[in-house]
Design a protein around this nucleic acid. Sequence first.
RNA 1: GAGCUCGUAGCUCAGUCGGUAGAGCAACGCACUUUUAAUGCGUGGGUCCUGGGUUCGAUUCCCAGCGAGCUCACCA
Length: 568
Amino acid sequence: MRTAAQAQSASGSRPAPDHAKPLSFAAIFHPSAAVDSDRASLMVIHNRTKVAKRSMRSTDILGLRIHCSSRKESRVSEWVFESEFERNLFALRQEKLEAIAALGQSRYPNHYRATHTIFAVRAQWNEVSGEALNGTPEQPAPRVEISVAGRIMAIRAQGKAGFATLQQGGERLQIYVRQDAVGEAGYALYKLLDMGDHVGVTGYLFRTRTGELTIHVESLTFLAKAMLALPEKYHGLSDVELRYRQRYVDLFANLDSREVFVKRAKILRAIRRFFDSRDYLEVETPMMQPIAGGAAARPFVTHHNALDLDLYLRIAPELYLKRLVVGGLDRVYEINRNFRNEGVSTQHNPEFTMLEFYQAYANYHDLMDLTEELIAQVAQEVNGTTVVEFNGHTIDMAQWQRLTMAEAVRRAVPGADLHDGKALYALFEQHVEHTLIQPTLIYDYPTEVSPLSKAKPDDPAHVERFEFFIGGFEIGNAFSELNDPVEQRRRFEQQLAAREAGDDEAHQMDEDYVRALSYGLPPTGGEGIGIDRLTMLLTGSRSIRDVILFPLLRPEKHNDAQSGEATA
RNA sequence: GAGCUCGUAGCUCAGUCGGUAGAGCAACGCACUUUUAAUGCGUGGGUCCUGGGUUCGAUUCCCAGCGAGCUCACCA
């Protein structure tokens, strides 16, 4: 209901109401969608006294109801505004916007041309002294004229002058606005500004008596208004649910949060550089697949209407990437989303980002070397060091340990039976995995637990497979790929039997994949690395939701509609 | 899916041994031309998550629901 209304108003096609209705968000945001007198009535809410405000809640103004607090009659507003406080604030800011327009400023200007980003200003003048910038009364320094734009994150007015802090590009810079420099209209504009507003300023750089680099503003341009209140300026937004649901607020209110996603982008860039420089080809394979293969997991199902075809969101790109190697793309990698219809936790999100790469003529030993190099190099590029702090541990992403699974289990569980593959793997998961804080490669997995891996030539009980662990959880999984089509078909048939026995995570038969292998897959090594988890490590984030911009949450329910039905 | 914890102003948090609530920031008004969590004085703002129960009375106690966090299980 909410989304439909918003979509309609956003498209501008919503017809004007044919009779007076409670003032809606759409009406405020798209004045053309509201009758003119709706706007006029907004203007009335000015200089309210307590008495005036109270009476306004239940009184018609100009024959139109404002409904400041009549929640049940104003459902659309109810969806948008959290409270009467917000509703009033929005209306008040709307008036300020009109007052700003009356000063000759555009309400929502189309552009602003700054000469510098705040980052650039800091880069160039952060170390320049106050003497050099300000000069002396006898010998003033030549002025550094610049203009920057940003969001107001702090504002302090003091009579006929004031300071504000602009934030842009994750950096902050103070501005100083005084009436005798910007004029009466300019200062009137300054006084109409609120925390969260966007402005552009032109002026010259100086340092205050406390030494802070500041723009002495000579021209102030209004750019956009914040119609809602910002989070508390000292603590920021700390409610984790709000941070995830309203990431747009989290990102500008908590610069640490922003930094995580900047780093995430750097990680992706570093990975691409790493593989590009080794002649890997970046590819994109289907996210919607008729058969969800390449991993053991429950898929999401969707439907293509025109083809009347059920499709699965992919649980892995693996089988398509190996088809490409059959096709002669010897080195391929893909960084993209996988979808698994399973639980959520601090380490699991239903959609997550996976790097997978395949290299013809390589085996798992080659991939071990490549992995250690990749992780160390990415850490170095992103953090400038290979050492990270994670969950109270100091981890060096360049110091690796390699152990066979049998050896790892033997150390943790003396006297354990190392010959039963499934039991060995269970012991590993139970006793070893969470202890692998420092980067560790575990190799030579039991064949029983590795259906897609190639057996060791001299030891059919083990396969050429490794996983690697950092911070106590798995980051990647790699093996020499099974490329015998007869063996592959046999394993699919085993999976099919398991599926019929009720295992809905067992692989489906993929005839076309077997056919691809039948054309000849060269000996190939392949690996998958969880990008979200790697990002957690490199940013010190303890939850996967802290490294995913919009993690999956249950939609918020608005209680008056829901609870009414529930109790009926 | 199970267990534990949490839900009070826009935000960050107190508090009520059961008698319908407070602070700081934010907002509004006034003062203030080098402040920076500006300051001073004043004002407004709350279905204390929702529903039910116990009670003279529930934001507080009990039950259920919704949402979130953590841990465990499955999984990467």
